[in-house]
């Protein structure tokens, strides 16, 4: 049996959902022969590859880079999972959404420094006006809310997907 090609992506989030994935602990060892991790913070891959079976996306869509990556993910993945509240609801990153990006950046890089009072602009992606949940920019096949979602829920989702079933999360997950 060929291994499922799994990718994990992390946009504007805290990595807590990835940590929750690692909290599968020893179960990871059982999972290892069944999956191939083709992209993500834990592996060395520069480009998001083609033909991914399942991609787990953590984090809200907050910058132009995030948006582009999200679109690439959608184009190259069969099944996209929004993992955790930031991807599902925009969560804490969305707390900036009432503030114009310019004001936000000026507070940090102009008012908040002692030297070089200016907003970075070279080689850094522009912020989107608002941080959005993933499904507001691409089609999402499954939502796993939680901050972070419990490792058990992530494990359940992976095993159901590997078994070719659509996970039913009613009553298993919550926002927050």
């Amino acid at each position: 049996m060929s291994r499922a090609r799994i990718a994990t992506v992390w946009l504007d989030g805290c990595s807590g959902c990835h940590m929750s994935l690692l909290d599968l602990d020893e179960a990871l060892i059982g999972l290892a022969p069944k999956i191939e991790l083709v992209f993500g913070p834990l592996v060395d891959a520069q480009e998001f590859p083609e033909g991914v079976d399942v991609t787990f996306v953590e984090g809200a869509v907050s910058s132009h880079d995030d948006l582009r990556l999200a679109q690439t993910v959608r184009a190259r993945s069969r099944f996209v999972v929004a993992l955790g509240d930031c991807a599902v609801t925009a969560n804490v990153p969305s707390m900036r959404n009432q503030i114009p990006p310019k004001k936000l950046l000026e507070r940090i890089y102009v008012d908040g420094v002692n030297v070089n009072h200016r907003v970075p602009a070279d080689g850094v992606p522009a912020l989107l006006k608002q941080a959005s949940p993933l499904h507001e920019v691409i089609r999402v096949d499954l939502h796993v809310p939680g901050c972070p979602p419990p490792a058990a829920a992530i494990g359940y989702v992976i095993s159901e997907l590997l078994a070719g079933r659509r996970p039913d999360l009613a009553g298993k997950v919550k926002f927050g």
């Binding site: 504007d12 900036r96 850094v124 912020l127």
Partner: peptide
């Protein structure tokens, strides 16, 4: 060399 950190969230402001 340039080391670009490419994300910002603004906790300082939105809190």
């Amino acid at each position: 060399t340039q080391f670009h950190v490419t994300q910002v969230r603004g906790f300082e402001k939105f809190t």
